[in-house]
Computed example of a mutant assay.
Amino acid sequence: MAGDLARRRCRTWYAMLLRLYPRPFRERFGEGMAQTFHDLCREHKDAGRGLFVFVVWAFCETFGGIVMENIMRMNQMGKTMLRVALAALALLMVPLVASRVVEGWNWPAGAFVRVYILFFATGMAYALIARKMGAWTYKAGVGLALFGGFALGWSTMVQTADSGHPERLWYLSALAVGVVGALLARLKARGLALTLFAMAATLALIAVMLPSGAPPDMARRMAIGHGVFVVLFIASGLLFRQASLARLK
Results as ranks from 00 to 15, higher is better:
residue 46 D to S: 14
residue 197 F to K: 06
residue 39 D to L: 10
residue 150 F to D: 01
residue 82 L to V: 09
residue 188 K to I: 03
residue 234 I to R: 00
residue 178 G to H: 04
residue 164 G to Q: 08
residue 76 Q to K: 15
residue 208 V to F: 13
residue 90 A to L: 15
residue 161 A to V: 14
residue 40 L to C: 07
residue 248 L to W: 00
residue 56 V to N: 04
residue 201 A to N: 02
residue 243 A to M: 02
residue 53 V to M: 09
residue 64 G to W: 01
residue 212 S to Y: 01
residue 176 A to Y: 01
residue 205 L to S: 10
residue 52 F to P: 04
residue 244 S to R: 05
residue 128 L to F: 13
residue 240 F to D: 07
residue 198 A to H: 01
residue 224 I to Y: 02
residue 103 E to L: 12
residue 56 V to L: 10
residue 58 A to E: 09
residue 25 F to E: 11
residue 236 S to E: 03
residue 245 L to Y: 00
residue 195 T to E: 08
residue 243 A to T: 05
residue 154 W to I: 02
residue 211 P to F: 01
residue 166 P to R: 09
residue 89 L to D: 09
residue 90 A to D: 11
residue 98 A to M: 12
residue 31 E to Y: 03
residue 145 A to P: 03
residue 90 A to W: 07
residue 127 A to D: 05
residue 114 R to C: 11
residue 71 I to H: 07
residue 100 R to P: 01
residue 41 C to V: 13
residue 219 A to L: 06
residue 23 R to K: 13
residue 14 Y to M: 11
residue 246 A to E: 10
residue 146 L to W: 00
residue 231 V to T: 15
residue 117 I to E: 15
residue 238 L to I: 08
residue 115 V to W: 00
residue 81 M to R: 10
residue 219 A to R: 06
residue 21 Y to L: 13
residue 156 T to Y: 02
residue 153 G to Q: 03
residue 97 V to G: 01
residue 184 L to C: 12
residue 141 G to T: 10
residue 141 G to Y: 08
residue 237 G to C: 09
residue 197 F to H: 06
residue 62 T to V: 00
residue 53 V to G: 12
residue 118 L to W: 04
residue 165 H to D: 12
residue 94 V to L: 12
residue 227 G to H: 06
